[in-house]
Simulated scan of single mutants.
Amino acid sequence: MIQRETPAPDNRHRRTEGPVRTCIGCRKRELAVDLLRVVAVSNGNGEWAVTVDPAGNLPRRGAWLHPDDRCLQAAIRRRAFTRALRVTGSPDPTAVVEYLSSAPAHEGQVAKNMSTP
């Protein structure tokens, strides 16, 4: 049996710091820690609302979004929440809009992996 030497895979462009997700607004790939996770929650009458999941532990399918108003507006314009979250109708993104409008208050805070020594 002849063994051939296979070239090593080119890993220059691959990040190994954690999971990579795609922003539903701009469609760019980023590390999950740099993106905001959103999920759809039911209002009980067949309507859906999109809410922010900063801890990353809410049930249901999640979507990822840059914490930037341009990406949010692009996601709304493209109706990306409906497709990414796999819900029927047009979910209400008001909670995400309010969260991003108060984002300067959240800057500098680490939401994940905070532990006391």
Rank of each mutant, 00 (worst) to 15 (best):
W48Q: 15
W64H: 14
P93I: 03
P9W: 03
N113W: 09
A55M: 08
N45M: 07
A84C: 08
V97G: 03
Y99E: 04
P54G: 02
R14N: 08
H106E: 11
K28W: 04
T22E: 15
D53P: 09
C71W: 03
G62C: 06
V33M: 06
T6F: 12
E5Y: 08
I76Y: 02
A55C: 06
L100P: 02
E98T: 04
V96E: 09
Q73A: 15
T94K: 13
A8I: 09
D53C: 04
T94A: 15
R15C: 08
S101M: 02
H13D: 13
P67K: 10
C26V: 06
D10H: 07
L58P: 01
R61M: 12
P104I: 01
S42L: 07
M1G: 14
N11R: 15
R61T: 07
M114G: 13
A32M: 11
C71M: 14
G89N: 00
S101W: 02
N45P: 00
R83H: 12
A8E: 10
N43K: 11
G108I: 05
M114L: 15
A95R: 11
T6Y: 09
S90L: 09
V87W: 07
V39I: 05
Q109G: 03
K112L: 13
L65A: 05
L35G: 02
L100M: 01
S42C: 06
R79K: 11
H13Q: 14
N57P: 05
